[in-house]
Design a protein around this nucleic acid. Structure first.
Length: 493
RNA sequence: GGCAUUGUGGCCGAGUGGCUAGGCAGAGCUCUGCAAAAGCUUGUACAGCGGUUCGAAUCCGCUCGAUGCCUCCA
């Protein structure tokens, strides 16, 4: 018996614009593809939010007992600066600017990407394929689309014929656009453009002689178009039709629209059952952009080396902050908001630690099973993590009251509570308890225990000068003493 | 300019046509040698203007603002 048989999940499908009952193609199995980063610079914090949302989704699916194949690609070629003929490959451009081999650029920023994600406690995807590793598959797809007459070759490049495709299929259904409107709204493009229509997009681009990143193809040396890799890799690893395709909201158009077109042109049917889009992250209410300086890198948050925030924030605090918003809402990052989240996060962690030493009784003063189901209900409602967190704080309240003997819990309920708290906080939200790792040092906690004892002796003798000194000195070292009914405890602040 | 999304109390952020999540901050109280921690109590907010309705923050229209896409972008 798997959890997913009892927990009925609804997901918001961007394609239909509605929350739908989630039903995988094959019971118990889920195929999920998420558009990964183009590794031409340090990973963007907003990018992290998107991947974090899908990490949480991945985690919840696994928790429910699904066998998930999660594919998240690395774009290491083909992502053009723009769609005009002069468009340069982002990685090639960076390589030129920094005088590096393109694959050095790819390696450098892939490593950065993985390092940051690890700090955020991401689970690795099942497969992390690269565009350059799937050139052959991409060429095969182009051949098929050409054979079906939905693409055309010109001067060694191949373009997808959007207008022709639109006669039998519906281009724009994901982003709610109509081709006619798009055509009428198009600005005049440069005259030298090879494309028949501005809406057409490149499947294959001819490499100019100086272009380093090039592969042989039936149309001459070149490189694949950006949208194509996702179709190639998702089809290869998840099949012609799979359950979930995710990515950032900004990829909806044109990237995902083009993916749908390619897959439908190639395979004759829709590639994806549920499209999911994570929303944007803003900084101080404005779009993050390097050009305006309204930008912050993940490691600048962790180290505190930035002009925007008052202090450093741990990856888990940032993760908690992001999980306090629904993945589908715009989230605004600010110092004030992070500060509030960090405090809330510490409160949650303290309660988690207190859970281990709670007294049990013959009756429970609150309904643990009902509470647990409420947590699942929140997650089942399109992964509503803010609601889940609200319920976790409800548990915090009960935990603290039980600790103060103002409420009670049975041993059995306590086990259920512990298990559920662990599942939701660590397995599903993917948070980490910093205190727990610090406490692994038994000697340190013994030493603090000794200081607590000395302080309490001093207090018993009314030597408050000494007791306060111990307390204050520890405080400055980041160790907070907490006097409770049953003695003194401590935590790392 | 076009298309889309969105606008909730000091800050962040859920949400349902009628019974007002949650976190942080603030205030009061309990506890404490004093604090801190913890607990309890306290806030009737929903951009503006109209409309539908017995009743709307929740539905519709307009206005204003923000964000995204429209050229690369999670």
């Amino acid at each position: 018996m798997h959890l997913y048989q009892n927990q009925h999940l609804k997901v918001y499908n961007s394609l239909s614009g509605k929350k739908e009952d989630f039903k995988p193609l094959n019971e118990g199995h889920i195929g999920m593809y998420v558009c990964g980063p183009t590794v031409y610079s340090n990973v963007h914090l907003g990018n992290c939010r998107t991947f974090m949302s899908f990490d949480m989704i991945f985690r919840y699916f696994k928790h429910l007992g699904y066998k998930v194949r999660y594919v998240r690609n690395i774009t290491d070629a083909g992502h053009l600066e723009n769609d005009a003929e002069t468009g340069e490959d982002k990685i090639a451009k960076k390589a030129r600017l920094e005088q590096l081999e393109p694959m050095e650029v790819v390696q450098r920023y892939t490593l950065d990407f993985h390092t940051i994600l690890e700090k955020f406690n991401f689970l690795p995807p099942s497969i992390e394929p690269t565009a350059t590793g799937h050139i052959i598959e991409q060429i095969e797809i182009i051949k098929t689309i050409l054979n079906k007459g939905l693409a055309y070759e010109i001067n060694g490049s191949v373009y997808f014929d959007v207008e022709k495709f639109n006669k039998t299929n519906e281009y724009g259904k994901l982003s709610g656009r109509k081709l006619e409107d798009m055509i009428s709204n198009t600005r005049e493009l440069a005259a030298q453009d090879e494309k028949r229509n501005p809406q057409d997009f490149a499947l294959w681009k001819k490499a100019e002689p100086q272009h380093i990143m090039r592969w042989p193809s039936p149309w001459g040396d070149g490189f694949p178009g950006w949208h194509l890799e996702c179709t190639a890799m998702s089809t290869k690893y998840l099949g012609e039709t799979f359950d979930i395709h995710g990515g950032g909201m900004d990829l909806k158009f044109p990237h995902h629209e083009c993916e749908i077109a390619q897959a439908e042109a190639c395979n004759g049917h829709a590639p994806v059952n549920y499209w999911m889009h994570a929303n944007m992250l803003t900084l101080n209410g404005k779009k993050m952009a390097k050009s305006t300086g309204n930008n912050i890198l993940p490691h600048e948050i962790f180290t505190g080396e930035n002009e925007i925030l008052s202090k450093a924030y741990s990856p888990s605090a940032v993760r908690f902050f992001m999980m306090q918003a629904h993945y589908n809402s715009i989230l605004d990052l600010s110092d004030e908001a992070l500060l509030a989240s960090e405090k809330g996060f510490h409160k949650l962690m303290e309660a988690w630690e207190n859970l281990a030493k709670l007294p049990t009784a013959t009756v429970s003063s609150f309904d643990v099973a009902a509470w647990k189901q409420k947590c699942y209900d929140a997650m089942n409602d399109d992964f509503n993590t803010p609601i889940l967190i609200a319920h976790l704080f409800e548990a915090v309240k009960h935990i603290n009251l039980i600790k103060e003997s103002k409420e009670s819990i049975t041993e059995k309920d306590l086990e259920v509570l512990k298990g559920a708290m662990h599942d939701f906080i660590f397995d599903i939200l993917g948070l980490e308890n910093k205190n727990a790792t610090a406490l692994d040092s038994d000697k340190l906690s013994d030493v603090i225990g000794l200081l607590i004892q000395l302080r309490n002796d001093a207090r018993a003798n009314k030597d408050f000068a000494t007791s306060d000194k111990i307390r204050e000195q520890l405080e400055t070292m980041g160790i907070q003493l907490k006097d409770g009914k049953d003695g003194t405890t401590f935590s790392f602040s």
